[in-house]
Design a protein around this nucleic acid. Structure first.
Lengths: 348, 348
DNA sequence: CTGAAAGCGCTTACAG
DNA sequence: CTGAAAGCGCTTACAG
């Protein structure tokens, strides 16, 4: 607290009466340091409130102590939860987070990425959809030797660690919940066909239906796009037909919120006349009425796992940053049972 | 594209046949460089795909090209919109964004802030509530000589630039909208009394009511906390009384969503029997039914303005980073008219 | 187990 | 208008 934190490694070395190299060893927790030396240095560090300068460390060494997060989709919640997860780990490890938004519609996505990693010397990069699946970006990172982890990518290229969750299993379990309540006529609103998550969630629904000998009825399955607006359209088609379903599984919460809106609009009582489930546990899930039964994606935890992988890599200074070995880790999701689901009406 | 971007200033100097100092001058757009020199250097830069190393610039110079964003409240949307705003400006200016979450309940908030600014040499810091009003954090930044801008702070300490919006005026205008529709019995749900925004919004409501000779009726004003849960309680008290209001102004969208939920719960039709307005234009505002009439806070724009102030300061390398002069700038809000408001029922 | 030297890639004074 | 020297605060080899 004394000197205002502007002390340098030399100041510490002088005060402790040792070489700067010894101070460096202690700071970096290198082996082969006598306990007495460690104590002397630590005392001087505390006395001067010394904190190593990141730029100098980065310039001289092979680590920058910087993790980058590249995101493309500016829609808030997801990116923010990822950041929180990364920050949780960075804080403990003395790392810092550099955030960069990539304009995914720009032609120079790869060039911008290259600029980032060469200028900033990032020790690792976390990627989320849709950037997870931009071959150009991945190539640039690989060529620059910057390890990266992909969170919930669309495809697993086998090029790097992947942290994800089992969308199909979650969707299956959620469908089972509806079936368990007694529903037989269960509508489904698919997500954007460009996203594999959309496919996997539908797959889970189909599996559960098949397991209970429930036929997939074409008039109960609609093609949405994950957007609220598309949900409105699908919900209208689903609900304004003679034989409407007693439950609807929307592939994400935005579309589920749209289903709820259409139900309100048409005087359909929730959940007594219609059960609705979504997927994601987005902020909306808790503030619509009735609150939405949905699947909570472990986004922050996926980000923490991604950061852990990156931090573990940079820990081994002897080997430099080894190429991040391909691996896959599926984290546990959680079914959030709220009030948007109930048994179907008795007369159905 | 050729050399993979690992070129250094020396490589450029050699290729261009000039000194590294000249390359530096061109890169930094310093004056007194002959046009021919500039061209030669730029050609070499392009040829080698040279990009200056940030660590080296930061270590040698007085600028780090890094803006920091310190946030305390991990609730997503706000922080994320702030980041987007800052990033918009950083991108153009060649700056980068370092994000740090401060645990506002920890005792060492100030110490952690100090660590950040001394280790990272940030050129400027953007602050949002509630950190905007932590005297310890502000003191640390001041002592370290790091310019900072406060976005929508609770109090204006006159210590730095402030970027905000006029909450009272917005609330007044929104109340006018309800009055213009014919409402006279307008309920109000206050926000957390610890936040000045709560006070200002109530003030705006009062002003509009007074301007139309409408009395403030105690049974129509409830004390909320900005949370959805608190909104539920207030809404129940407001709506389950004999003389219920024909419109409710909730001090934020979360509470407004709660009002809507309570209305649905009790079979009160929206907006025909009850109009509801919120504040913030949070993501929920568009996905409840009916969609919420609210005030859009120019969050990203406030962040952009904050970044502009910081970037302008660091631009003057001659003077170093002058202490950021106290100033205040109010940005334009926008009233978002959606379907949650309508004239009151005829018989009221 | 400890240290003296060199160097990371830039910018800052300072000459010319 | 241009350049040679010194130095930012560390870490990397390399000695001892």
């Amino acid at each position: 607290m004394k000197s205002g934190g502007k002390a340098t490694i030399t100041d510490v070395a002088v005060l402790a009466g040792v070489s700067i190299k010894s101070v460096s060893r202690v700071i970096n927790k290198e082996p082969n340091v006598r306990e007495k030396m460690r104590e002397r240095v630590m005392r001087a560090v505390a006395e001067l409130d010394y904190r190593p300068n990141f730029s100098a460390r980065s310039l001289a060494g092979m680590r920058s102590f910087l993790i980058g997060y590249l995101f493309g989709d500016p829609s808030g919640d997801y990116a923010h939860r990822v950041e929180i997860g990364i920050l949780n780990r960075c804080r403990e490890a003395g790392y810092h987070l550099m955030v960069e938004q990539i304009d995914i519609s720009a032609p120079d996505v790869a060039a911008r990425t290259a600029a980032l990693v060469t200028q900033l010397r990032l020790d690792g990069v976390v990627l989320t959809p849709p950037i997870t699946d931009f071959p150009d970006v991945l190539r640039v990172l690989r060529e620059a030797g910057v390890p990266y982890v992909r969170i919930a990518p669309d495809q697993d290229f086998g090029d790097s660690p992947v942290v994800a969750m089992d969308d199909a299993a979650a969707a299956e379990q959620l469908t089972e919940h509806l079936i368990g309540l007694g529903h037989r006529e269960i509508g489904f609103i698919k997500g954007d066909p460009g996203h594999s998550a959309a496919r996997l969630r539908y797959e889970g629904y189909c599996r559960a239906m098949a397991a209970h000998q429930l036929k997939l009825q074409p008039h109960l399955v609609e093609q949405g796009l994950f957007s609220y607006a598309s949900g409105l359209e699908c919900a209208r088609r689903l609900l304004l037909q003679p034989k409407r379903p007693t439950a609807i599984f929307a592939s994400n919460d935005d579309m589920a919120a749209a289903v709820i809106a259409v139900a309100h609009e048409n005087g359909i009582r929730l959940p007594s006349e219609l059960s609705v489930v979504g997927f994601d546990d987005a902020p909306i899930a808790g503030v619509v009425w009735p609150p939405l039964t949905t699947v909570r994606q472990p986004i922050a935890q996926m980000a923490e796992a991604a950061a852990d992988i990156l931090l573990a890599l940079t820990g081994h200074k002897d080997t430099g940053s080894p190429p991040a070995a391909a691996s896959r880790r599926d984290l546990e999701y959680e079914i959030k049972l709220r009030q948007s689901t109930a048994p179907p009406p008795a007369d159905s």
